[in-house]
């Protein structure tokens, strides 16, 4: 180790630490603000001088906020399960079966990756209004029940499952669906975990489509509800900051538990996409 290497390392640590303050600051500011009283938040204050938890009490006593929390959880969980199931099923089929039209089907699914959601929301909206799906869980969820990217990812992973293993199970008389569930899925657990986390985060944070399709406050998801807080007559910044903090915490927890998967997942999308 040369001296120049050491000094480079020290310099790196210094710069990174300074930058990290910038990265963390908005989180701290959000959290600080949520502990301030109405009077304090409108004055020049940094740390909460008399920290209060009234804002949290108020937000958890508001039935609407709890409802949004529940809506977001239901929607994120159901769509994630659906994506996991269908995407791995399609990935499995495309990787492990030979049948006419296979290439076309794969190309068809992958080509949908090129279509921006913004282009689809208008037809989705018209569709939802025709079928009476506006302002319902199904209306919010249906566009995200499967993901082309997930199909692509799962197919890659299913490819690496040895055929011998599947054939052995067939000889034992296991059904094709049984092979998929009992043999293949356990082997691609890491990929499933990555897909699950990304979908969950994506659904939890989704804004444009839920904003469009939900119309009554009781059907809002957390992000749409947060934007609704801003409504002129409810503009209370300490509550907006409290709501933001509460909506961020579940993700931070998910993130801390699954950080390795998330980092791996990002790298995966980057290097294979």
């Amino acid at each position: 180790m040369t001296r120049s290497d050491r000094s480079v390392r020290i310099l790196s640590y210094t710069i990174l630490s300074v930058l990290i303050v910038v990265m963390i600051f908005p989180f701290l500011w959000m959290a600080f603000s949520s502990f301030k009283s109405t009077a304090e938040i409108y004055s020049q204050s940094y740390f909460p001088e008399n920290p209060i938890i009234d804002n949290y009490q108020e937000i958890f006593n508001s039935s609407l906020f709890l409802r949004w929390l529940m809506n977001s959880a239901i929607i994120a969980i159901v769509t994630t399960i659906s994506v996991l199931f269908f995407d791995s099923l399609v990935g499995f089929t495309l990787a492990k079966y030979q049948f006419p039209g296979k290439k076309i089907i794969f190309a068809l699914i992958i080509s949908t990756l090129m279509i921006p959601t913004e282009m689809l929301v208008i037809p989705w909206y018209i569709m939802s209004s025709r079928f009476g799906w506006l302002d319902s869980y199904w209306g919010i969820m249906f566009p995200g029940m499967m993901s082309a990217f997930g199909v692509f990812l799962m197919r890659q992973f299913m490819d690496s499952v040895p055929d011998d293993l599947l054939d052995a199970a067939r000889i034992d008389g296991m059904s094709e669906f049984g092979i998929f569930v009992k043999i293949t899925l356990p082997l691609v657990k890491p990929a499933l975990a990555t897909l699950a986390i990304f979908n969950f985060i994506g659904d939890w944070n989704a804004f444009l489509w839920p904003l469009i399709v939900s119309s009554t406050p009781k059907m809002y998801t957390l992000p749409v509800g947060l934007a609704y807080f801003s409504s002129e007559n409810l503009m209370r910044w300490e509550m907006i900051m409290t709501g933001s903090t509460v909506s961020t915490i579940p993700l931070i927890i998910v993130f801390l538990i699954f950080q390795k998967h998330i980092v791996k997942g990002i790298a995966l999308t980057g290097l294979k996409g």
Binding site: Y125, S129, R130, G132, L134, D135, S215
Partner: peptide, 8 residues
């Protein structure tokens, strides 16, 4: 505007 034409 979204709901009246949709009849809901």
């Amino acid at each position: 505007a979204a709901s009246v034409p949709a009849g809901i």
